[in-house]
């Protein structure tokens, strides 16, 4: 009986947290489309999420492309199918690796920063101060971050696509001895718009989820420095899990036969 009660409590608490997150997301999204708007804050978040994430996303992409070329070459050489390396690299990067790895990297960088900043504002009464100054915290703090995450992660992933494919090209041409023009031709030959588009759609969803988790955990943090620390950890962990789960769902939606 005690075990059942414990399972029941966990389940009810999970449902309550899910409901609270859904309400938080709904209110926040409604504030994205309703005035007043804060273009200055949106621009700051766009720079923070987009521009400042480019180095980490670019480095992740270039090394991923290089490793992918090496690994796929090793495998395909056993079937005399080395010519498929370029296609495998470009499809893997655009469909899966660029959005997922960029999402995870940005979750670690931006999700944690958002949770820490908003969490600190919560425990130091800055969010309460916003309310007394007739400023809606959802509109001022959450909406610009959600919108910036939704818009800027696809931009980062587009850059990651190019850099990742370039990483594969570098290894294939300079280390594995592929002909440059043939490699480029093979890269383009089997690439379809939907491959890139699906990656960008994933990135937009991941960007939204990262910002949502960062803002949500920060907004409801309590208990001083320890609470802010927990909020930061929870934001990164939950965003990472959601990225992997939604990656499957979006892949299923795009490519299921």
């Amino acid at each position: 009986m005690g075990l059942l009660a414990a399972i029941g409590r966990v389940f009810i608490s999970f449902l309550a947290a899910t409901g609270r997150l859904a309400v938080f997301a709904g209110i926040s999204v409604s504030h994205i489309v309703r005035p007043p708007f804060y273009p200055r804050l949106l621009l700051r978040q766009i720079i923070e999420i987009g521009y400042y994430s480019l180095p980490v996303v670019g480095l992740t992409a270039v090394f991923t492309g290089m490793v992918l070329a090496l690994q796929s070459y090793t495998g395909f050489a056993r079937f005399n199918a080395e010519s498929a390396v370029a296609t495998v690299v470009v499809l893997s990067i655009t469909r899966e690796l660029a959005p997922v790895l960029a999402g995870l990297m940005v979750a670690g960088r931006i999700g944690a920063a958002m949770a820490a900043e908003i969490g600190t504002m919560r425990v130091t009464e800055q969010i309460d101060a916003l309310s007394t100054l007739s400023t809606n915290p959802y509109k001022y703090l959450v909406a610009p971050r959600l919108l910036a995450g939704f818009v800027m992660l696809p931009c980062c992933v587009l850059v990651a696509d190019i850099i990742g494919v370039f990483g594969g090209y570098l290894i294939s041409v300079h280390k594995l001895g592929f002909n440059p023009s043939v490699y480029i031709k093979n890269t383009w030959q089997f690439l379809e718009v939907m491959d890139v588009l699906s990656g960008l759609v994933k990135a937009a969803v991941f960007g939204f989820l990262i910002a949502l988790m960062g803002c949500y955990h920060g907004y409801y943090s309590k208990g001083g420095a320890q609470g802010v620390g927990s909020a930061t950890t929870n934001a990164v962990v939950s965003a990472s899990i959601l990225i992997l789960a939604f990656n499957y769902l979006i892949t299923e939606a795009f490519f299921a036969q």
Binding site: E117, T120, M121, T124, E125, Q126, D128, A129, S131, T132, L133, S134, N136
Partner: peptide, 19 residues
């Protein structure tokens, strides 16, 4: 918000916006 425009508050820790 309209009611709050009539109010001003000094918080215990000042609650200034860090940024």
């Amino acid at each position: 918000d309209r009611i709050n425009r009539k109010l001003g508050m000094l918080f215990q820790g000042a609650a200034l916006f860090d940024s």
